[in-house]
Design a protein around this nucleic acid. Structure first.
Length: 121
RNA sequence: GGAGUGGGCGGGGCAGUCGCCGGCUUGCGGGCGGCUUUACGCUGUCGACAAGCGGGAGGAAAGUCCGGGCUCCGUAGGACAGGGUGGUCGAUAACGUCGACCGGCCGCGAGGUCAGGGAAAGUGCAACAGAAAGCAAACCGCCGCCGGUGAACGUUUCGGCGUUCGGCCGCGCGGUAAGGGUGAAACGGUGCGGUAAGAGCGCACCAGCGGCCGGGGUGACUCGGCCGGCUUGGUAAACCCCACCCGGAGCAAAGCCAAACAGAGGGAAGCGCGGAAUCGGCCGCGGCGGACCGGUUCGGUCCGUAGGGUUCGACUCUCGGGUAGGCUGCUGGAGGCGGCGGGCAACCGCCGUCCUAGAGGAAUGAUUGCCGCGUGUCGUCCACGGCACGCACAGAACCCGGCUUACAAGCCCACUCCCCGC
RNA sequence: CGGGGUGUAGCGCAGCCUGGAUUAGCGCGCUUGCUUGGGGUGCAAGAGGUCGUGGGUUCAAAUCCCGCCACCCCGA
């Protein structure tokens, strides 16, 4: 983990997010996913040169505070890892219900799952 | 010192780096409009980018249990239905909320708690037990009378008769509700009188109910006196009656702008020659009409071109409705804080001061250091220090007043009871 | 934002509206015994319940009323 090193210059705006319902439907229709004990990541090619992040955090995950914490962790992990991730993918990330987790584990899990999906293409 | 009652505060702090949301200012260059001019400038507006500045979740933001503002719809007035509330007076925009007071129950007390109107308006319900569960009735029992009968005594005209034994028997007639026992609950309690036995049958006191009079209080109610018949139980969070309250929907409300598709109405030119060919139609040239491109006249490209009528389609213009989408609603308000005044209080009035989130698949995160608090452990006990772990409940979605529920550590105020000392 | 429903034995349900002793019941499952060479089937007996939770009303609450918890469904 490159904790403490200069992690500057990782902007993360709305253009890097999956927001439209049609995009979510396309990712789900692709039926390509990878998972571990923490996360479930689905993916589909997009027409862009960069990858985008979509969040799917349902009510079974926890109350509003828990759900917000997951979404913030996932956004931050995507922001810091975006140069290590494969490009041109729409990634929809869903936390497994009931698990605790912490930020470092989320970061590692997101990177490995996304790379596994890119390899399996 | 111990035990307890009622209430309040609090919701980790500071600094650095990388990011997020929206706001303001400036810069850069781009689109559109206007002015002025011929090329710069001025100005408005919109979008993207960059920089700077300052802001960015709660006491419950939660549950969505009540009440209101606001918006649209409906509506002559009222009633019914349905729902809600339920001591009194007050507070309030309103409430099922709050305050003060009254009454019942609990507590030695500080205090706590109560959906706290009506059961002589009506209907219903009460298992089991019990004689009987609501209007009086009478199982055992008690008492009297009547009938039968036993013993003893007296008397005798020897058939009986009388008295006593609170004698015994009766599925005979009547009087009782004191006693027995059941139950959550049994038609007032105690005492005296009274009676064949008893009974509010009478009396005294007490409790309860009703009425009248007087004192206090706005009122709930309360204090005192007199009288009455002696009583008429419980349950309305059972139906119900009484009093009061409620039009419906909800910011995905609602308003504005407004693609595409569909709908309604309207519109220009609608010719000639030649070739193959029966016609339709196709091809070429010219004309005409329309659109587009370059642009000074003008040129080029593409499309249409019918004997007449009708229908359909295409193109184009206009129109209403208003979908996708966008904008508004969107945060300055029954607002916070301080002071003065009124009121026991809830709360109200006046003055001053402050501006404090506005997203829209939904913004607060990551990381580093120091400090704070708690627990554990180590250093020799203390003072202190090191290390490890932990620091709750929980995230605005139109706004506000309440209620309910969740919550780590810590702190404060008032009061009560017990023990000890002076 | 608004509306509705469910919670009872390991599982699926009844009872609730109209309160009580009807021992809170039914089916499957479970335990034990008999039957069989053994298993299944069959027969007999039995165990198993904070009626989601905390209060209230009532003599009495799974049932009536209020608060809370969990889950499910519907409308805009």
């Amino acid at each position: 983990m490159s904790r403490g090193k200069a992690e500057i210059g990782h902007p993360f705006g709305r253009d890097l997010r999956v927001l439209a319902k049609t995009d979510f439907d396309r990712v789900h229709a692709a039926r390509r996913s990878a998972s571990d004990g923490l996360l479930v990541v689905s993916a589909s090619r997009n027409s862009l040169s960069v990858s985008r992040l979509g969040l799917a955090v349902g009510r079974v995950v926890g109350n509003a505070v828990v759900r917000n914490r997951w979404k913030r962790w996932l956004r931050e992990a995507f922001r810091l890892e975006q140069r290590e991730l494969p490009s041109g993918l729409d990634l929809v990330v869903r936390p497994r219900p009931g698990v605790k987790g912490d930020f470092d584990a989320v970061r590692v899990s997101l990177r490995t799952l996304a790379q596994r999906l890119a390899k399996r293409r």
